[in-house]
Amino acid sequence: MTSSQLLLGVMLGMFVLALGVVFFFLAYQRRLHKQQQEHQKKEADYQQQLLRANLQSQEKERNRIGKDLHDEVGALLSTSKLYFRHLEQEVDPQKFSELKEKALTVLDQTMTSVRRVSHDLKPVVLERLGLVEAISNIAEQLNESQAMQVVFSNKWEGSLDKEFELNWFRIVQELMNNALKHSQATQVHLELNGDEQRLVLNYHDNGVGLADPSSMMGKGLGMQNITGRLSLMHGELSVEENNREGLSLKLQSATNEIEKGN
């Protein structure tokens, strides 16, 4: 083989090599594109799931409020109406006074019911005293009810957006709700910490835990609500591994709109 033939071979070899690079790139690019599409589809499915959970949750809340108004406030108002119907001048004064007292008691109960419903809609303690006090309040209420013991500690001293505060309050409510309904826990530990940019809530209960923690994500309206709210605040929820029995969760989010991007 002459040197010129060898060089021709080298030229062709280089050309084929370059062609190989192009084909490799095309194949790799196609694979990348496919992966991206799959990722986007998963993301879209997840968003849809969150939206559905959000709508279901709204509907559930409306039903609850409707039920509260109908069963409690409605019933109490009907009762007071009955009392008022009997309040006539001809009635014996002692009976009149008795009926009036009963009507006033029912009206007091009605006012308490209305206050409770409105408190559920917009928690006053959160509005007036902030998230830390509101969580303390939830813990106190549960401790008083003796349904379970809640130990709450706070190491965080930052400030939160009002919208974020409400989201966190609802998350804690949902966590407590889940603990009461499903965990069979007798004790729950809540710890708030973080800094100016991030807020972290560590949750631990001594309940039955989860056989497969990863399966928890995306299952159940409550959990979807929690992850949905965290996602709105650019946060996340992770199941922490521990040697203790029960369930350990770490929830974190940004503290305001500006920090969302970090």
Binding site: T2, S4, L7, L8, V10, M11, L12, M14, F15, L17, A18, L19, V21, V22
Partner: peptide
């Protein structure tokens, strides 16, 4: 990529063949 990969070797060595190997030049 294809053009310059294919012709790179030719441009490196073409001066060595200019005066000596006429058929090689034609092939190049």
């Amino acid at each position: 990529l294809l053009y310059y990969s294919g012709t790179l070797v030719m441009f490196i060595l073409i001066n060595n063949f200019l005066d000596e190997d006429r058929p090689a030049i034609i092939n190049f």
